[in-house]
């Protein structure tokens, strides 16, 4: 059961990943710092999932990116774009609606 439970929790978390990433990247971050920022708020995403997702969102035009050279180390910074902000508002509204729906169901039974 614990394996199935873990799979269900993973699936549930996967559903809010984009929302979490777009929200966190309202402040400019690079891959590793984004992961740490998410970890701090208890959203633990595997790097192998997070980094490709960030690139995918960038390819959709939801994120802007730039390379930076700091102390001889290259870093790629990402930030939510204007289009990303618009999408984020829609997703947030959907998320709140879903949350409310679950609460309503819980209260009804």
């Amino acid at each position: 059961m614990s394996e199935k439970l873990e799979a269900m929790r993973l699936e549930l978390r996967r559903g809010i990943l984009i929302l979490a990433v777009l929200t966190a990247l309202r402040q400019e971050q690079y891959g590793y710092s984004l992961r740490k920022a998410l970890q701090e708020v208890q959203i633990d995403i595997e790097e192998g999932t997070l980094y490709p997702l960030v690139r995918r969102l960038e390819s959709y035009g939801l994120l802007n990116s730039r390379w930076s050279n700091e102390e001889g180390r290259k870093k790629r910074y990402y930030q939510t774009s204007t289009k990303g902000e618009e999408i984020l508002e829609v997703l947030k509204s959907d998320w709140q609606q879903l949350n409310q729906s679950i609460l309503n169901i819980s209260e009804a039974v």
Binding site: Y32, S33, Y51, K74, R76
Partner: peptide, 16 residues
């Protein structure tokens, strides 16, 4: 591009 970014993230993690 991906290789460069992956390296940067690893280096950051290793430094951490």
């Amino acid at each position: 591009d991906i290789g460069e970014e992956l390296r940067a993230n690893f280096e950051e993690k290793i430094a951490d």
